Simulated scan of single mutants.
Amino acid sequence: MNLSPIRKIYQGVADRRQMFRMFDRHAQRPNRWEGDDSALYRGEWFELGQVGHDYMFEVLPPLWMRGDMFAMREFLTGSITSIFFNLSIDGRVRYFHGYCDLSDRASPAQMRDAIVERESRPVRSMTREERIEHIWSSTHDDYRGYADWHFPQAERGKHIVMMCAPWQGRDFKLLDQLSDAEISAKLPVHLRFLPDVIAA
């Protein structure tokens, strides 16, 4: 799956349970402790509530604080760590989490600017990639996974999700190969008919 450098991975405000799930939404990946997994996390962001934001602020003393953001002291992998933002968007303070690569000093500011730009759009909209990311983030671990030996060699390791239909039984399909109709069926009702970002 070709991911943009900075990407929204969940639509809406994540509650406490969902927030902790998304902190490591790639936990089931094969060969988890082999190699550098920074690319999986770098650039991911989502919105959370003030309670979640404040809780994370109090867990450990921040690595650093800069006005509207702070960095977690513990690193997820390599130089990737959590950055928490409290941003005023359209006159309302909102809270966000993102994974930034601190080897690039501009990374937190770039993340902040991308979030503000994305969330300042006058019309609610989603790209195809955002729809797919939301499906992956919100699907229970038992119904998602990674392509294994059942798939061609070139597809192994890619995200897969379970498809259920009376005429086909249960089967897994590559996430990035879902049709528009399949994506719509897997999204919650309130997200199914949002316009595409290009049309916004």
Rank of each mutant, 00 (worst) to 15 (best):
Y95E: 04
A147Y: 04
N86L: 02
A114Y: 03
C100L: 05
V123M: 07
M111R: 03
R94K: 14
Y95W: 14
T139S: 09
M111S: 02
R144L: 07
A147N: 05
T127C: 01
Y146G: 06
D90G: 15
W136M: 05
A114W: 03
H134F: 14
A109Q: 13
H97L: 15
R112K: 12
Q110V: 13
R128K: 08
N86Y: 14
V116N: 02
I89P: 11
V123A: 05
R124Y: 06
Q110F: 07
D113V: 01
S125R: 03
T139Q: 03
D141Q: 10
S103A: 15
D101K: 08
S103C: 02
A147P: 06
R105F: 11
G98E: 08
H97N: 13
T139F: 06
I115E: 00
R124I: 02
G91P: 10
W149Q: 13
T139C: 04
Q110N: 12
F85K: 02
D141M: 04
W149F: 14
S88G: 06
S103W: 05
I132M: 10
A109L: 13
P122L: 09
D142C: 01
G145D: 03
P122V: 09
G145R: 02
D104K: 07
V123P: 00
C100P: 04
E117W: 10
R128N: 03
Q110G: 02
I135M: 07
A106I: 01
Y99S: 09
R124M: 04
S103H: 11
D113G: 02
A109P: 00
W149E: 14
D148T: 09
A114D: 04
S120T: 06
W136P: 11
I115G: 00
G98N: 08
I89K: 08
I135P: 13
S138L: 03
T127V: 01
R105A: 14
E129K: 03
H150I: 10
M126Q: 12
R118K: 07
L87T: 11
F84S: 12
S138I: 07
R124Q: 12
D141N: 09
R105V: 14
R128H: 04
S138F: 06
R94Q: 15
N86I: 01
E130Y: 05
I135D: 11
R131D: 04
F85A: 06
S138V: 11
R131S: 08
S103V: 03
H134A: 05
E130M: 02
D101L: 11
S88C: 11
N86Q: 15
D113T: 07
S120I: 01
I132D: 00
A109R: 10
S88V: 14
R118Q: 12
R112A: 13
H134N: 09
T139R: 02
R128M: 02
F85N: 04
E119A: 04
A147L: 05
D148R: 08
D104M: 05
H134E: 07
E130G: 01
V93E: 14
R92L: 14
P108Q: 07
Y95K: 05
R92I: 12
A114I: 00
R118P: 00
D90P: 00
D104A: 10
E129F: 03
T139P: 11
T127Q: 01
D101M: 10
E119T: 02
H134Y: 14
P122A: 06
F96I: 08
D90S: 15
E133R: 05
R131E: 08
W149V: 14
